[in-house]
Design a protein around this nucleic acid. Structure first.
Length: 559
RNA sequence: UGGGGAGUCGCCAAGUGGUAAGGCAACGGGUUUUGAUCCCGUCAUUCGUAGGUUCGAUCCCUACCUCCUCAGCCA
């Protein structure tokens, strides 16, 4: 369940290109693709790419493929492939037709390599990896030709066939494109396009011992699928000439165009798969779907909505400039969606006991789940002699601007009476442990006469409240750019207070909430019952998705 | 110091030879039995810097500065 409103797409350079291509009749319809390698869980950066590629296909009534770039069996697993599909679907997108795999094209890829060899554009090289590095030259110095560069076509054909047949050890030989060892673009200095690697592949098993490289595979996969716009991140800009070289030299009619946009950086988070994996392996977090993780599954478990993430993606736009987006943009997008859809209920996280001295028995009152959406229904709010309120809502002496409860002061109990605090009971240490208050019986559903009560606080009747585990999440890192400094380990910036678990109380209407049910706990924030640990009717576990905007804390902080 | 990119408000981001959209944040004010939401208003004489072309430049030209990126048999 999410808000359905779909704002107009934001103009960006890729849409401009597509508009122009369509206008001059280069394509009738566009075909994009989202091409992850199944070597990890998807994160918020991938969400941007997913929203871009699938979103473009939707807007232009084209299609978007999901294609796994599974050319490096050593790093890939089916668990990852499954999670990626689940994440894409959860985000609200459906790929065109079946899932595609680069490994579907292994035979075709092999044949194309033979074509390159026949054209004298590829050769088998016996140089070791270290030797190849030496021969490659540097950023400022041209490389040198490999001594094996001039093998005949026949010899190359034979050698490549024998590579495939498993006659050589891993790493003994590679197939290289014959381009230009003096190119100022290092990617063009005879890049390796096939390597020998005896590893079990998640789909082809042990059928192959040679695997094609990314640069060679990606462009051909795109062409074979009729992709019109192949969109990737900026670090592949230097690879575009190679992308084009491969397609220009092969007998494939289709030649997709590659466009690059800048990857997402989000304040206070990291989006490096390697580093996220490190957090998981070192148990700094509970797993890939820990609610503090910027993974799609983590954000989901935290309570972020798919519509909210899509809206975030729309708001940040697409460009080629370096960027680092404020968390506030994400939180704003999530809040906007939750504001519209989340039922309001009451929870008390840091309880302070209140006894109502002039009340006996019990009382009930009906209250809507949402102030603007009565169609969400209502529930019963119980009142009694023993209550709990939020400890933060009481101050013996009201600071300037205070609208909550103070000794001798009055406050409105949400959906209930106006209450005055008559006495604060303290323990030996001088801490307030209980309040003795009285209510104005004439204020249920109406304002008191002759005076104005400004503040409203929430409360729970002790008799009716249910215990719940409340998980309060804060940012995972203490600095905006944890991995900016290459000299400092990003883990040193881990926020020790990123998770606080507190025993709290919730109103009885949430008792049977299914896992992954979202609420607004009034005045506290948006919360979501935990996907894994929450048990309807049993142990209740809620994750704080995001706080409400809070102008009081800000004001108080600046006093 | 080679190649490839990028520099427009605190953070994103449109835009174009004709006089700077929008969002987020921020700041004022109104409504409110959530200090939420909602509503109203304010927020770049200026587009990395310096020159030049032009009636006119953020947009064209030149030079410079800053940042990012590339030397895997990873993707």
């Amino acid at each position: 369940m999410s808000s359905t409103r779909t704002p107009a797409p934001v103009s960006n350079f890729i849409r401009a290109i597509i508009d122009a291509d369509l206008a001059r009749g280069l394509h009738n319809r566009i075909v994009t693709r989202f091409p992850p390698e199944p070597n990890g869980y998807l994160h918020v950066g991938h969400a941007k790419s997913i929203c871009l590629n699938f979103g473009l296909a939707e807007d232009y009534q084209g299609q978007c493929n999901l294609r796994f770039d599974d050319t490096n069996p050593e790093k890939e697993s089916d668990e990852y492939a499954q999670s990626i599909q689940e994440d894409v679907r959860w985000l609200g997108f459906q790929w065109s037709g079946d899932v595609h795999w680069a490994s579907d094209y292994f035979d075709a890829l092999y044949d194309f390599a033979v074509e390159l060899i026949n054209k004298g554009l590829a050769y088998v090289d016996d140089l070791s990896a270290e030797e190849m590095r030496e021969y490659r030259g540097t950023l400022t110095q041209a490389g040198r030709n490999s001594p094996y560069r001039d093998r005949t076509v026949a010899e190359n054909l034979d050698l490549f066939a024998r590579m495939k047949a498993g006659e050589y050890a891993d790493g003994a030989k590679v197939l290289r494109a014959k381009i230009d060892m003096a190119s100022s673009n290092i990617n063009m200095r005879d890049p390796a396009i096939y390597r020998i690697r005896r590893a079990h592949h998640i789909r082809t098993g042990d059928a192959w011992c040679i695997y094609p490289m990314y640069d060679y595979t990606h462009c051909i996969s795109d062409a074979l699928e009729g992709i019109t716009h192949s969109i990737c991140t900026l670090e592949f800009e230097d690879h575009r000439p190679l992308y084009d070289w491969v397609l220009d030299n092969l007998s494939i009619a289709c030649h997709p165009r590659q466009y690059e946009f800048s990857r997402l950086e989000l304040h206070y988070t990291i989006t490096s798969k390697r580093k996220l994996l490190q957090l998981v392996n070192n148990q700094q977090v509970s797993g890939w779907d820990d609610p503090r993780m910027p993974t799609i599954s983590g954000m989901r478990r935290r309570g972020y909505t798919a519509a909210g993430i899509r809206e975030f993606s729309r708001r940040i736009g697409v460009s080629k400039s370096g960027n680092s987006v404020d968390m506030a943009v994400m939180e704003g997008a999530i809040r906007e969606d939750l504001e519209a859809i989340a039922p309001r209920v009451v929870a008390v996280i840091h309880p302070l006991r209140v006894t109502i001295t002039n009340f006996e028995g019990a009382a009930e009152r009906e209250a809507d789940f949402h102030p603007q959406h009565p169609e969400l229904g209502s529930r019963v709010v119980s009142f009694g002699r023993e209550l709990v309120i939020e400890a933060d809502d009481f101050a013996e002496v009201a600071p300037p601007g205070w609208k909550r409860l103070s000794l001798g002061g009055e406050v409105r109990l949400r959906h209930s009476y106006v209450m005055r605090c008559d006495e604060a009971v303290k323990d030996e240490a001088g801490r307030v442990v209980e309040l003795r208050c009285s209510i104005d019986h004439a204020t249920l559903g109406k304002n008191p006469e002759g005076r104005k009560v400004r503040g409203v606080i929430h409360f729970l009747s002790c008799e009716h409240a249910l215990p719940a585990e409340i998980r309060l999440y804060d940012r995972l890192f203490t600095v905006p750019a944890p991995d900016a400094d290459k000299e400092v380990d990003f883990c040193t910036y881990l926020n020790p207070r990123s998770l606080t678990v507190v025993p709290g109380w919730v109103e009885s209407s949430v008792k049977d909430a299914a896992p992954e049910t979202r609420y607004q706990f009034e005045r506290l924030g948006y919360f979501c019952s935990d996907r894994r640990d929450h048990q309807p009717g049993g142990k209740l576990v809620f994750n704080r998705t995001v706080t409400l905007k809070d102008s009081w804390t800000k004001e108080a902080g600046s006093l």
